[in-house]
């Protein structure tokens, strides 16, 4: 049962990942990405990481996906005339249908797995150790792996600053103020 579910989800994850890079419309790409995220969430669940599965759906499937959609919509709205002439942003074509079907199926499979699997399979923490799964995770992150955790935070800061450097607009005013200062 677990194996079958795993293979279904693995194939779905790879298929939707291929969909992300091959879809022509960005919206279809994003929806395929959603399929990948959901399939991955089910795989986490099968491996016994309910918390990771929940976070995967909440953070990636929810927040980040909404952000992607926002960005795509905003970018496409840059030039009103072009938008008026262009095709509608969201054409519910076949690819979208497939992507939505895959994500829906993956979610259903996940729910199925959560119900059907024996309880001990869903928990990598030995029964009777009296510890919840999130505690073990927190122990790992803030205990043994605290240094990689901190390095990751520096990495994210560098990435954020880097993106800011590339994205911010040139300020022609800067040089003018300097000229005023010198006067």
């Amino acid at each position: 049962m677990v194996n079958i579910l795993f293979y279904i989800c693995a194939v779905a994850a790879i298929a939707s990942a291929l969909g992300v890079v091959s879809a022509r419309s960005p919206i279809n790409s994003v929806l395929s990405l959603l399929g990948t995220f959901f399939s991955l969430a089910v795989i986490y669940l099968l491996a016994g990481f309910q918390f990771m599965a929940a976070i995967q759906i909440l953070v990636y499937g929810g927040a980040i996906m909404v952000l992607f959609l926002f960005v795509i919509m905003l970018l496409n709205l840059g030039n009103p005339e072009q938008v008026a002439q262009a095709d509608p942003l969201f054409k519910p074509g076949r690819a979208t249908g497939v992507a939505l079907a895959v994500s829906g199926a993956a979610l259903l499979l996940g729910l199925l797995a959560a119900h059907a699997l024996p309880a001990d399979h869903l928990s990598p923490v030995p029964a009777g150790s009296g510890r919840a799964m999130i505690e073990t995770l927190a122990d790992a992150i803030f205990g043994k792996y605290v240094l990689p955790f901190e390095v990751a935070s520096v990495m994210l800061l560098a990435a954020a600053v880097g993106v800011l450097v590339l994205a911010k607009r040139e300020r022609p005013g800067l040089l003018d103020t300097e000229a005023e200062d010198n006067r």
């Binding site: 990689p148 390095v151 990495m155 560098a158 600053v161 880097g162 993106v163 590339l166």
Partner: peptide, 17 residues
């Protein structure tokens, strides 16, 4: 793990540079 994080930190900074 730490090797990979260090490598990524170097890479991400280099991309924007």
């Amino acid at each position: 793990l730490l090797l990979m994080l260090g490598l990524e930190l170097l890479s991400l900074a280099s991309y924007s540079l």
